[in-house]
Design a protein around this nucleic acid. Structure first.
Length: 202
DNA sequence: GGGAAGATGTTCT
DNA sequence: GAACATCTTCCCT
């Protein structure tokens, strides 16, 4: 615990409509502490998931895997997919509502050297965090981090940040899903080079 | 530079 | 046994 509760979010920030939170999360910072090392990334791309949404893990009800989503807002929901990738989510809404925001891409801010060590494949800064699986690898986020409270933890937490005046929010349909593709619940910063290349950004 | 397909393990039906 | 909120590699232009 260092520096006076700096710019952490209140839990109530996440106890709102998930699409609204997903949009306002753009420009904020994700911090990861691994012993001496600290990673910081600026959130540039998010996706909202809702219980009434067939593309969401919570759509079919609570299971052992997704029970974090049904809990209190502000917690991290980390899951494993495609046999080799983790994805990091932030739980939203009130307990029982099962809403979450998938962090799709970050802009590297601090700890770039360590990120390159963890991601040997990365050649450019834009390769480090431009995708949900990538950012988890670079930040060393895995199932150990599932269920961390992002409001109070010093290991993994969020702080407030703002968009620059020249940055615009772009809204499109989501990436990598096969149902409910018509819902436009993906939010990212327009023209930011660190956004993942899921779809044309129009 | 861009599109297509393979890799790989956990979870749910 | 099938599906999966993905990344990387390979091959083509």
């Amino acid at each position: 615990m260092s520096r006076a509760s700096e710019k952490r979010f209140d839990r109530s920030f996440f106890e709102r409509e998930v699409t609204q939170v997903a949009k306002e999360l753009l420009g904020s910072y994700l911090h990861r502490r691994l012993g001496e090392v600290e990673f910081i990334g600026r959130i540039v791309e998010t996706e909202a998931y809702h219980q009434s949404d067939p593309a969401s893990h919570s759509f079919r009800g609570m299971t052992e895997r997704n029970k974090i989503m049904f809990g209190e807002a502000g917690f991290a929901y980390v899951y494993f997919t495609y046999g080799m990738h983790y994805c990091a989510n932030v739980v939203c809404g009130f307990p029982g509502s099962a809403e979450a925001i998938l962090l799709r891409a970050l802009e590297p801010v601090k700890g770039l050297g360590e990120m390159y060590e963890r991601r040997e494949k990365a050649k450019k800064d834009t390769d480090l965090l431009s995708g949900p699986g990538k950012l988890c690898q670079a930040f060393a986020i895995g199932k150990e981090q599932n269920g961390i409270d992002l409001i109070t933890s010093d290991e993994l937490f969020l702080t407030r940040g703002k968009l620059r005046t020249d940055e615009k929010i772009k809204i499109t349909s989501r990436v990598g899903i096969t149902v409910a593709v018509e819902k436009e619940w993906r939010f990212f910063i327009k023209d930011n080079p660190f956004v993942s290349k899921g779809k044309p950004s129009g």
